[in-house]
Structure formats: C-alpha cells, structure tokens
Design a protein around this nucleic acid. Sequence first.
DNA 1: GCATTTTGTATAGCATGCTGTTCAAGCTGC
DNA 2: GCAGCTTGAACAGCATGCTATACAAAATGC
Lengths: 145, 145
Amino acid sequence: MVHFKDKSAGYLVNHLARLLEQALAVAIRPLGLTPGQFPTLLALWARDGQTQAELVREVDVEQATMALTLKRMERDGLIRRERNPEDSRSRLIYLTPHAKALEDRALAQAAEVNARALADLDEHEAQQFLSLAIRLVETLRKAPD
Amino acid sequence: MVHFKDKSAGYLVNHLARLLEQALAVAIRPLGLTPGQFPTLLALWARDGQTQAELVREVDVEQATMALTLKRMERDGLIRRERNPEDSRSRLIYLTPHAKALEDRALAQAAEVNARALADLDEHEAQQFLSLAIRLVETLRKAPD
DNA sequence: GCATTTTGTATAGCATGCTGTTCAAGCTGC
DNA sequence: GCAGCTTGAACAGCATGCTATACAAAATGC
C-alpha cells in the first residue's frame, strides 16, 4: 500500500533533510563544525567581512537564527567581529584563520555526503533532481503566504 | 555565477525543508497542530493504538524525539495512553476524538501546501521529483555510515 | 532640527531534532 | 531460577529553526 508519505513533497523532503543533515553532522564533526554553520561558512568563504544582515539575506534564515548561529561560531573560534566604520549599528564578520583553513576539507566532506545521497541516480537524474529542487525553492520563496 | 548551494543536494534540501515546514506550520496552526506532530498523526490515523517503539520505526526519528513529541501531543489533547496488556513496559497510544476529527482538514491543508510547492512543475515533473526524493531517502537509510 | 520610520542586533521562549544516560521489564541461557 | 542481555521509555543537554520583543543607530520628512 502506498502511504501519504510517499506522495507528499513535504513529508519526503523533511525526511530527506533529516537524513542529509545527520550524514553531514557525522562527516564534519571531526573538523569541529556543525551542519547549521555550513551555509554561513559558505557565504563567508565566498566573501569575508559581511554584516549579519547581509548573511541573513544570503542564507535565508530569520535574523534571530543567524544571531544565534554567529554566537556559537564565535564561541567556537570560527569568526570574529569588528566594528563597521560605515554603520555603527552593525559589525563586520570575519572568518578566523582556523575557519579559513577548514574550507577545503569541509567542502570535500559535504561533496562526499552529497555524492553518497545521489549514488543511486545516474548523472541525468541527479541533475534533474537538483533542478527540480531549485524550482521548488524559488516557487516557495516567491509565494507570499 | 553558480554557487555551491545550487549544486548541493544537502543545501537545497535543507532550504526546501525549512520553507515547506514553515508553510505547513502556517497552514495547520488554525487547527492547533504543528509540523512535527504530522508524521505521528499520519501513522495513528492509519492505525490507532500503537506503541511508542512502533511509531519510532514508522516515522524514522530517534526514540527520544518521539517521546518528546508524544508528550507535547498529550499536553495538547491529541493522544491518550493506555496500559498495554501484552507488555507492561509500554503503553498503547490512541488518538483522542478531537485528533480524529482533525484528520480531513489537516490532510487538506497538507495537500494544499504540497500543491503550492509543486505549482511550477507539470504533472510529469512533479512525479519525477517525488520518485527521485524517495530514492534518495532509501539510499541514505541503507547507507550504514 | 527634530519626530517618525526604518534598519541592525540581541534575547526570551518554544518546537523539533540529535546523543547519551538511566531505569524498568521482558527474554535467554545455563 | 537467576545473571545477563535486550527492549521500551523517560529525561538531560545541546543545535537549529521560528516568532515576538526590545533597543540603539541611521535615514526620512516636514
């Protein structure tokens, strides 16, 4: 019998997200990183010295979530904050040398987890899955409700 | 420029899962339900009177997670627990009449959220996405690490 | 030039997930 | 018939997400 859960995008995506997050957690634990830090690290590896508000827009989480993530990253020695000469409400967020040094190994672990998840799909199917996922994200980001 | 996040199954699925969970939260809030309760409700609507261990296997979350979810559901008047005559370590979990009465409306809301997420895809693409997602879930559930 | 609005952050409170630990009850083997 | 293993469940501690609130600094309007 086919259950609701095999026909529900929400159910499947939630389940898949938990499995992927777990796999990533295991893969990057030896580096002292956690899955929740990954999107912010990607943004900072791409461009160092951003404000919290910029990171919020790029990572698409709520400001309160980003504030807490940055607090943990600071605690863990991944970032430091310096005053922003342009706007004294905000501070600029910079990666520590330690966090910069982790980039290659962290990306390699993430790529390995992705490859493992997609292992059962051929090249075309994998690309298809990513394209469709992007379209769902875009659809939901635009939907006002 | 294409970012890592547009090529990473993990990044995309995490983002998509957050968007879908949020949309579902809004849609079922008027019913007094939360997204985390949904998988357990689906299992109990399909078969009432299961043990916690059975629900854990069906929903595929950790036992501690299920224990806490059930505690909140009990607090919210969605379930009650009765002693299991077969095994006094466990209790059988039953939906309250209130929770049973919510089934149709809750399923309708979930279906509406799924439809909205898939709105940009045609019939074939939507089916393709669900099939591929199922295969990723199965691959990761089998992977030992 | 000042009141109002907007923007940038922090914090509290809560839901949902995890690991680790503990404990009771059932099962197994000798 | 009991020691030891297995199974069912609860709870503590923590990460990651959300909403709601609060407040300071910047921008805007008149």
